[in-house]
Every structure is written in C-alpha cells, then in structure tokens.
C-alpha cells in the first residue's frame, strides 16, 4: 500500500505544474483581456479559408 505515497506525489506534482502554469499565464497578462482572444480566434480560420479559396481560384484559372 505504500504505493499511495507515489500516487500522492504524482498527483500533487501534476496539480502544482498546472498551478505554476496558471501563475505564469496571469503574470504574462493573459487574463487582462478575456474578450478579444475569443474574437481573434475566429478570424484566423476565416483568413485561412479565404486564402485557400483564392488559391483554388488561381488554380482553376491556371487550369
């Protein structure tokens, strides 16, 4: 049953890793603006679509 010590150590270190990740993200200011990234995230997709569309058009033109 002493395996419980190993398990505890693992679970707590995983938890601490996530906690450190949280602290770093706050420090970098990722929580300062919680709105814009949600909009920005959608743009990238649209942009890729558009450029690939253009590529397709170009291709069809060349063909």
């Amino acid at each position: 049953m002493s395996v419980i010590y190993v398990l505890l150590a693992i679970s707590i270190s995983v938890a601490i890793v996530f906690f450190i990740a949280f602290v770093i993200s706050v420090r970098q200011g990722q929580y300062d603006d919680a709105y814009t990234p949600s909009v920005r995230m959608l743009f990238e997709d649209e942009l890729v679509d558009q450029s690939s569309e253009n590529n397709n058009q170009n291709k069809s033109q060349t063909e």
Partner: peptide
Amino acid sequence: KSSQVDFPR
C-alpha cells in the same frame, strides 16, 4: 510589425 487589440479597453 504587429498590432494587438485590447477590445474591452
């Protein structure tokens, strides 16, 4: 080079 918007502010 780059520009970043902070919409709420």
